[in-house]
Every structure is written in structure tokens, then in C-alpha cells.
């Protein structure tokens, strides 16, 4: 998986100026986190204590909020987010094997990002197209009736290689 890059000095400066704008406004935590994520793509853990002290919260509380929302990340995400469905229908029709194959294909575990920052792998509970199970969602497009061959092709194609 990708080694978490340390945010650059410039990035930290950018983040800090965002934090300053929200200082001591506890209600502002969520918009603040969203803004950082928008600008930076993720919320570097090193800035959590800064956020906490500006908001007069505990760092553990800020972490609690970040980890509560699946849309907030503490690690840089890949260009493409791959979500493998773990819903019951997908499970019954071999979703587990599909997940295993995707992991092998990308060389990362759930929640991790490939070292070239191309892909981030996640699982989802159910995406609601059970008729097509097993399913994979890449960014906004759904790929149904997955099998080992299709998995391999999918990433070849996406890779462009």
C-alpha cells in the first residue's frame, strides 16, 4: 500500500489558515473538516491536534467525528475509489471471492490505497442493485455480474495497460 506521505509545508500552511478561520466555533467542526478534505483530498492526522486546540475540543473527539463519517479520510485517497459490495445478495453469489480477487489485483487490503495513488479499495454494505450481484462500483459506475475474468479485465482497462 501507499506509504502515507507527509503533507508538505505548503499544504500544512493552507490547512492552518483554514483552521484559523474557524477558531473557537465548535459548531464549525464539520464544515472545517470538509473544507480541509476538499483542499487537501484528506485530513492528515498530524493536523488533528491543531484542529482540536483551535476548536477547544480533544484530539480524540475530532478523530471520533472524522472516523464516524465514511466520507472523511485520514489518508490520501486514490484517483479511483473501488467499492466491492458485501451485501447479502453479493455475498451469496461469491462477493467474497470477488473481493479477494480485487485485493490480489490491486495488491492492497480494504481501506488501503495503491502506491501509485490510482486506486483506493473499500467495501460497501449494499448498493441496491442486487439483481446484478456480485457487484463492484468504481467511482460512480456500477459493474454487475462480476466474475474472475471480468475483474481482471476491469483493472487492465482502467489501468490502460
Amino acid at each position: 500500500m501507499a506509504k502515507v506521505k507527509k503533507p508538505t509545508k505548503a499544504a500544512l500552511k493552507r490547512i492552518n489558515s483554514i483552521i484559523t478561520r474557524y477558531s473557537e466555533q465548535r459548531w464549525g467542526l464539520i464544515p472545517l473538516l470538509q473544507e480541509i478534505q476538499q483542499v487537501q483530498g484528506y485530513i492528515p492526522p498530524v493536523v488533528i491536534p491543531h484542529i482540536a486546540s483551535a476548536m477547544r475540543l480533544f484530539p480524540s473527539q475530532v478523530q471520533g467525528v472524522i472516523t464516524f463519517y465514511t466520507q472523511l479520510y485520514t489518508e490520501p485517497q486514490g484517483k479511483n475509489v473501488v467499492r466491492v459490495c458485501r451485501g447479502t445478495a453479493c455475498h451469496v453469489r461469491g462477493g467474497k471471492t470477488i473481493l479477494k480477487l480485487v485485493k490480489q489485483e490491486l495488491g492492497v487490503e480494504e481501506g488501503e490505497t495503491t502506491s501509485d495513488y490510482e486506486y483506493t479499495l473499500e467495501t460497501v454494505a449494499c448498493i441496491g442493485v442486487c439483481a446484478l450481484a456480485p457487484n463492484i462500483v468504481i467511482n460512480n459506475s456500477t459493474h454487475g455480474h462480476m466474475n474472475p475474468k471480468k475483474v481482471a479485465r476491469l483493472f487492465e482497462k482502467e489501468d490502460g495497460s
Partner: peptide, 25 residues
């Protein structure tokens, strides 16, 4: 931890099945 001794060492992390009281990081 947060209301009585006010150390802030722990809070919930994640949600759903994996939710648990955790330290920072």
C-alpha cells in the same frame, strides 16, 4: 474521561460493527 477527569484520552472511533472507544491514532 471527558466529563469527569477531562483528559480527553478516548472517544469513539469508527461506527457500526467496528465502533469502539479508542485513543487518538
Amino acid at each position: 474521561d471527558q466529563e469527569l477527569v477531562v483528559e480527553g484520552a478516548i472517544d469513539y472511533m469508527d461506527r457500526g460493527f467496528t465502533a469502539k472507544p479508542a485513543t487518538l491514532g
